[in-house]
């Protein structure tokens, strides 16, 4: 069984429609630890020791956040700057995270087609997340395509929310159970586009 750590970064959970539901659903999945960063460190004073300990105790790390300016809210950047230390996460001696899996679980304001070569943003979401990808690769980790909920601001009105939450929960359960096709997921543009084919129902993939 894999242990999953979700680092949840949302500065305004009081106004959240989708992310808060994702977080609540994640909390209910066995094998998942969810850390609300803005709740734990309201003044950005991140406990580096504690955070590193958490990383060591888990196999899969998820950055869960809404997309702000093609990236994450500020606290998650602060977290990376402080926790992924030389000698711990990277450098010739820094092999603490080697082999672990990481990806982003995000909500986007724009629709799926906007995040394409032909779309307004001229890039896939995964391409825009290159800094995340490279960070994890430098830490000798495996980076998967993002799990993304597009046009999240309309999910409730368009009655998509329950489906999204169920998908997210299914993904987390598959990760815990080791039933996600990791090599497929490493190549995927997103995990959400074709979740069904990535989740193996029969054999353990990993």
């Amino acid at each position: 069984m894999n242990k999953v750590l979700i680092l949840f970064a949302h500065p305004r959970t009081d106004r959240s429609e989708v992310n808060i539901e994702m977080a609540n659903a994640a909390r209910s999945v066995e094998g998942v630890t969810l850390v609300d960063l803005y709740e734990s460190y309201p003044s950005f004073e991140i406990d580096v020791e504690l955070e590193q300990q958490r990383l060591l105790e888990h196999d899969i790390i998820i950055f869960h956040h809404p997309v702000y300016w093609y990236s994450s809210p500020a606290i998650l950047k602060e977290w990376q700057d402080l926790v992924l230390e030389y000698g711990f996460a990277y450098g010739s001696e820094g092999r603490a995270l080697e082999g672990k899996i990481a990806f982003n679980a995000v909500t986007c304001g724009a629709r799926r087609e906007v995040y394409t070569k032909e779309g307004a943003y001229q890039n896939e979401l995964r391409e825009l997340f290159a800094p995340f990808e490279q960070t994890f690769l430098l830490c000798r980790m495996q980076y998967l395509g993002p799990f993304a909920i597009f046009a999240a601001g309309h999910a409730v009105e368009e009655n998509r929310l329950d489906g999204h939450i169920a998908d997210y929960k299914r993904l987390l359960q598959a990760l815990v159970a080791g039933k996600l096709d990791i090599s497929g997921a490493e190549k995927a543009k997103t995990l959400s586009d074709n979740l069904d084919t990535l989740i193996s129902k029969t054999a353990e993939v990993k």
Partner: peptide, 24 residues
């Protein structure tokens, strides 16, 4: 660069940072 100093510190000078550089 010891553990008593942490927080926004650069890697030590001459340190091998890129995985391809080291004995991987």
């Amino acid at each position: 660069h010891d553990s008593s100093e942490r927080g926004w510190t650069p890697p030590p000078k001459g340190a091998k940072v890129i995985p391809a550089d080291d004995d991987k």
